[in-house]
């Protein structure tokens, strides 16, 4: 668990709003240099990390988790020094007011999303403000701000990782850094001699804005099999059980029209045979993951989807249980060491 925690901190402390994944390059290289044979970057901002099994004509297994997170971008610097912004990805704007953010200008500056007190809100205290009603307050004057911030600079939730009781951690960006962490830890633990595939890990870009990064990386790799990992809704107060998976029950294997039937069935069989804890969720016609792009990239790829349960998606306090990350790592290890999936 200590390795998982360390990796999670290394990943989550990096700003990687969709389109700006390249800023995390140094951290990714430091984290992964000893684990992989080769690390490459591509124009979309994705990282391709290769770990070879050193067997001749080994099939290629792609394992994807996305690095990018939802965030914002500066659209204007207002006359009183406030910043207007547009969302990048499906930001949960209901919880934005009074949120702490970092504006990535020439330097990183602290910002606070404005919040009109309920007493003064014309639309009523219960209504949720749209993003265009919100601004970022930095404390700077317009003149000072213009020296630091340009239109088009990205904005992210302020990094803060908190360990909770019961093995839970909460911070922004766990979608999908929890899974990236699981993949890296699996690759750290695995014995190369047991590998049955040349492994191509894609720590991919721009999932939150159209799922394009992994599909482009996959096009270049042309894998035989692709395992897509992403977070999925965790059940809890107010969320319907039938659309969710449970925290602490391990990662899930998703069953969907978009995932390969045999590959998925073989993975479930393998996990049952080895007694590895997991759960199943049905995602009938869409998975809303990178599987949708990888599936149809190039000449098409056999894909399976693994999910980690996550609470409070797309908010500053996304929450996962470390056990479920460990479970994902175990499942990935089992898959990478099994022939003929």
């Amino acid at each position: 668990m200590e390795n998982i925690k360390k990796t999670l901190v290394a990943l989550c402390s990096q700003m990687s709003v969709s389109g700006y994944e390249y800023l995390a390059e140094k951290a990714i290289r430091e984290l992964c240099a000893d684990i992989f044979d080769e690390i490459k970057t591509d124009p979309m901002g994705s990282y391709v990390l290769i770990k070879r099994c050193k067997k001749e004509n080994a099939p290629k297994l792609l394992i994807d988790g996305h690095l990018d997170t939802v965030g914002m971008m500066v659209t204007d610097i207002k006359k009183d020094g406030f910043l207007s912004v547009v969302n990048i990805g499906g930001l949960d704007t209901r919880v934005l007011p009074a949120t702490e953010v970092t504006v990535y200008g020439k330097e990183e500056i602290y910002g606070l999303v404005t919040s009109t007190p309920p007493h003064l809100r014309k639309q009523g205290a219960d209504s949720v403000p749209a993003l265009k009603e919100l601004y970022i307050d930095t404390g700077y004057s317009k003149e000072e701000l213009e020296k630091i911030v340009k239109i088009g600079d990205p904005v992210g939730y302020r990094y803060k990782l908190t360990e909770m009781n019961g093995g839970y951690v909460t911070t922004s960006g766990l979608d999908d850094k929890a899974c990236v962490c699981g993949i890296i830890e699996a690759m750290r633990e695995i014995d190369v001699n047991d590998l049955k595939y040349d492994i191509y890990v894609t720590i991919s870009a721009q999932e939150e804005t159209g799922k394009n990064g992994s599909a482009r990386a996959s096009f270049g790799i042309d894998p035989d099999i692709a395992i897509i990992t992403d977070v999925n809704f965790a059940s809890g107060d107010g969320t319907p059980d039938y659309e969710c998976i449970k925290c602490k029950d391990g990662c899930s294997v998703d069953i969907s029209s978009l995932t390969d039937k045999d590959l998925t069935r073989n993975i479930i069989k393998l996990l049952n045979k080895k007694g590895i804890k997991h759960q199943i969720i049905c995602e009938p016609s869409r998975t809303y993951t990178n599987n949708e792009g990888v599936l149809v990239s190039g000449q098409g790829t056999r894909t399976a989807v693994l999910s980690v349960p996550l609470k409070n998606m797309h908010t500053p306090c996304e929450t996962v249980n470390l056990e479920d990350i460990k479970s994902l790592a175990q499942v990935i290890c089992a898959i990478a060491c099994e022939e003929n999936l």
């Binding site: 124009p43 659209t75 239109i151 088009g152 990064g213 096009f219």
Partner: peptide
Amino acid sequence: YQNEVLLYGGTDASSIQVAGTGAYV
């Protein structure tokens, strides 16, 4: 020049970005 963040509408840059293994656009 001006820095452009356009909220509505797009252009061919999006198609070029996602062709093949991707391009800087």
